[in-house]
Design a binder for these strands. Structure first.
Lengths: 213, 213
DNA sequence: CTGGTGGTAGACAGATCTGTCTACTATGAG
DNA sequence: CTCATAGTAGACAGATCTGTCTACCACCAG
């Protein structure tokens, strides 16, 4: 837990032409990460060897291992990337549903519907990664952290929506979400995300309805 | 789709002493399958090599390949076994809740709670297997078939319970169930199965309540 | 001109994994 | 006794996978 990069953002040469390599985000590294994003998700992590990623990224083996000393480092970077994309889609779907937190809790399920519809949809990258890793490993921990972050966000929304038991509501909604993510991979049928949204609405309404006056 | 075993059940020698090998279920085969059940679930399918299964089963390599010509054949047999066990637990939990189908729909979630509590729980074997296989392969198909069978069973119960839209209710409940199975592996916290059951009750009541008179 | 940085190309080592094959043993039925 | 069946023990081939290492190239800052 040392300071990794003192004044990491204070790049002395702030991308002169805009072209080359600002420290961490070299073109080669991005190519590797993009390839990993595509292949790991499509085929599974263990099913994709570093040799394939290297070939499809058009980089040299030494370049690969310079950026990612071990395959697992790339896997974690891949999960970081998926986290950014998926969390962004969830929040965008929620905000698209309006400013009412209760509506947002229902609206976020539109991200699920869209995900399941996508060509090559193969379930939740995190659940899949967890299935291929052992508890306690960095990869598994990254998955747990992602799910905890989503749960915390939904819990905050539930509180804003005035749920009587925001913890229970958030847990139920993420359960529906995870179920939809997992089922969507096994059943192309669009019924699943639809049912998830309908159920989410029912649960949100039940949890926020005024019992008396 | 040919007839695999004409009069398969008509074993000419119906287990004289009860001891030896009634055709398909030799002791060696059972040992292999038991070992696979344990190791595949605990570590993942790709993470377990046939050599390890052979060593832990105390069989010879030739014996292994006689019973399971390829590793994937063992994987499918493993999923068949899991299907039997898990489906049995689901139905037992449902029946333990009484004779009212609505109660059974809620009670089946007790199987989820029990599963998540078990030492070494690592999620749903089928979701995990799907994460490690490609759509269209026998292993993946077996997973899809299992999920379809559970959905069909829950749908029948929903109909018996008098749900207005048994399809939607069944879909929602299996979503909660799958979500609980997936989350349980990422979050030892027993809140998840509890929330699943509470939500299930709410959804069942909402779906079967008499809207007017 | 020099030296550091980031990259290319690819051989290589060592482990591991699936599946085959040979040779031998035990047992029970006819 | 004979023969088929089920099993044991383990070498072996061939593929694949991670990670290392050598050698070379291009560019830019000082």
């Amino acid at each position: 837990m040392s300071v990794i990069s003192p004044s990491a953002s204070a790049s002395t040469s702030p991308s002169p032409g805009g072209a080359p390599a600002p420290a961490r985000a070299s073109a080669a590294r991005e190519r590797i990460l993009d390839t990993a994003f595509r292949l790991f998700y499509a085929k599974g992590i263990r099913a994709v060897g570093v040799d394939l990623i290297i070939a499809e990224s058009d980089v040299a083996k030494a370049t690969f291992y310079k950026h990612f000393p071990a395959k697992d480092d790339l896997v974690v970077a891949y999960l970081d990337k998926v986290d950014g994309v998926w969390t962004g889609q969830l929040k965008a779907a929620a905000e698209a549903a309006g400013s009412d937190p209760a509506d947002q809790l229902v609206g976020l399920f539109d991200a699920l519907t869209a995900a399941c519809r996508r060509e090559g949809y193969r379930g939740c990258a995190f659940i899949n990664a967890a299935a291929e890793s052992l508890p306690g490993t960095p990869v598994h921990d990254r998955t747990v952290a992602h799910k905890a972050a989503v749960l915390a966000w939904v819990r905050d929304l539930s509180e804003l929506a005035g749920a009587r038991t925001p913890d229970v509501l958030a847990r139920s909604l993420t359960l529906l979400l995870d179920g939809g993510l997992a089922s969507g991979a096994l059943d192309a049928n669009p019924e699943a995300p639809e049912a998830a949204k309908v159920s989410a609405r029912a649960l949100v309404e039940a949890a926020t309805a005024d019992p008396a006056g």
